[in-house]
Design a protein around this nucleic acid. Structure first.
Lengths: 344, 344
DNA sequence: AAAGAAATTGAAAGCGCTTTGAGTACAAAT
DNA sequence: ATTTGTACTCAAAGCGCTTTCAATTTCTTT
């Protein structure tokens, strides 16, 4: 059933039917009702292609997911983020278009989306330091919001981020207050902006408390369970092992935990662990009492909010790009405790 | 730059330019080359909307992701599956459209995708027993392939599945051969077809070996880390605890492991653990020696293959829907060992 | 009752592409 | 010299919508 058929079935012009369905005021309420009922009855939905062609809007948002060519790794937060954003889209009649792309030919994907008029805007995932996508999108004039930020960007752009630096300030401070002086960091990949900021927060707080940075306690890599495990195992084998470890995700935290227990130690007593928690649906951090002490910020909620920002920006572009900085919550769980006193 | 502009820039008609770009034979090679060069130079890409309108194809595949209203859970395998499918799509010039939908109003989403001509086909995720989407899609005539199967379906439909039953046959057999007689099952949600088949495989093998099914050793729920933990903790507290546990995913396996160690036991010695492993990119099961003994089947590869099936089906529908049954590989790791002899 | 305003409806153009049916030019065949 | 191919090229219609501009009907006002 298309518009033509529907309107002739109703004995009305396409114009009137179109107006009735799109809420234009020049249609009598009686007619509108009649049209709406008929549309529902015949299960009529305007073709999005035709609509898009006529209006010049795509009613779609692109998400370009970079898959690192190195490890073929899909960021595990992605599912939850998408779920959050998707809610906003469907509430607003937008479609979500996903492009999985290896990081090499990202540029052409963005250009393609733009020139094919496939989307009205895009979400930039996983920003790096000096992310080239930001100037690119600005140049080609495709509306976008970055999930995260990009240190080094020279002009303003729209973003939504967690205050990673402050989160890790607080994480390090919390451990310091518990008496820990050797605190390891199992961070995400250097080059990722979030990892950079987290490390900055960690180092700042340590320095502020007079603790020199020991690079032996600094690891960075893709946040897999195995990476958490290996990093921790190696650090625990040091002459002066850390008494606490801060890590960047629940998944790596599971690996950290495994290494601690493999070493015959007890998490929360011998070694404290503090993780960032994105509140992924399948990795709930314990129900009442969190297993891991964590800095907590729901990535799903971030998706919801970011999508709203983007849609607002598309509806009426502002002259100063919107920014939103979310604070992470510090949740005390069972994985942290006072620094062991029997250590040197 | 649109077709009109490009063709007038070239001094050719739109017809010729269109044909040149789409590989039609009635265009001289010289012209084609000239057109292609100009198109590249001006970064011309045909509008997908206009193209779709003219051809009647959407050049897009829909993925409708059900999010359970109960737990707001996004299946963690989803990211990797999508990554696999996405590769196939982009190689074939297709777009992927994602709809996140709570399980209640799924039907209207499928009908909408069809009537809006938004997609040429869809992938059905997470099939249940007697999944209503299969008759629905068949009825409305939207091509689809199911990732998994649906026990109880009355007519043939296209699917790609892992041989879950045989996988769990082998899993149970492997443990039986190691001397285990009390084998727990931490399964996915009853109602999900894959969980049903796995349980069938498990029960079949136990019965075949003369072991009665003990419902105290059977758990089913959403496959979170916490669910693995709680189920295992409870089972270990039984009067006659299991000496081995089979679980449905790496994530729940991590919880199983945690419960075992919390109980002061050693995985692989006191309690054996065997898990199904979807080979998720962020949960690699150890590099050389797998940590967990597992039945292994890459969900990413499944995504790739399934997308190919669907595109082939769209290109030329076959009269008998294609099916593909993948076998899971049994990988022996460190989490299993002979049943402890000191147990009754 | 006439005139102007307001409300309601419709015909047709246009969005950017593909594709049909027709036309032109040139070489080869009769 | 005419016919028959062959190789190119193009004008125009059509895909299903929105939207402009114009037309008609109904209501107010005088």
């Amino acid at each position: 059933m298309n518009l033509k058929q529907l309107s002739s079935a109703l004995g009305l012009s396409q114009t009137t039917v179109s107006r009735a369905l799109n809420g234009y005021p020049e249609v009598s309420e009686a007619t509108r009702l009649r049209v709406q009922t008929a549309a529902r009855k015949h299960n009529y939905n305007p073709s999005s292609r035709a609509k898009g062609l006529a209006t010049g809007k795509a009613l779609a948002i692109g998400h370009v997911i970079p898959v690192s060519t190195k490890h073929e790794m899909v960021n595990p937060i992605f599912g939850d983020f998408i779920a959050g954003a998707g809610e906003t889209y469907s509430r607003n009649g937008y479609e979500m278009i996903l492009s999985i792309v290896n990081d090499v030919d990202e540029e052409s994907v963005y250009r393609g989306l733009k020139s094919r008029h496939a989307v009205d805007g895009v979400v930039v995932h996983g920003p790096t330091l000096n992310d080239p996508r930001i100037p690119l999108l600005t140049e080609i004039g495709l509306p976008f919001v970055v999930h995260g930020r990009s240190s080094g960007a020279t002009s303003p752009y729209a973003w939504l981020d967690v205050n990673n630096k402050r989160a890790f300030n607080r994480a390090a401070n919390f451990l310091y207050d518990l008496g820990h002086r050797r605190i390891g960091l199992v961070n995400g990949l250097e080059g990722m902006d979030f990892a950079h900021r987290r490390r900055a927060g960690y180092e700042e707080t340590l320095r502020a408390n007079g603790i020199p940075i020991d690079t032996a306690l600094l690891r960075s890599g893709e946040m897999t369970e195995d990476f958490g495990f290996q990093s921790t195992r190696d650090m625990l084998a040091l002459e002066r092992p850390p008494t606490a470890i801060i890590t960047a995700s629940m998944i790596s935290a599971l690996g950290v935990r495994r290494a601690i227990e493999d070493a015959g130690l007890v998490m929360g007593r011998d070694v404290s662990v503090l993780t960032h928690d994105d509140v992924l649906s399948y990795l709930r951090n314990g129900a009442d009492i969190p297993i891991f002490t964590s800095t907590r910020s729901s990535v799903r909620e971030a998706g919801r909010l970011l999508a709203e920002m983007l849609l607002a920006e598309i509806a009426e572009p502002s002259d100063t790009p919107p920014n939103l900085l979310l604070e992470a919550e510090l949740m005390v769980g069972l994985s942290t405790g006072p620094a062991p006193t029997d250590m040197p």
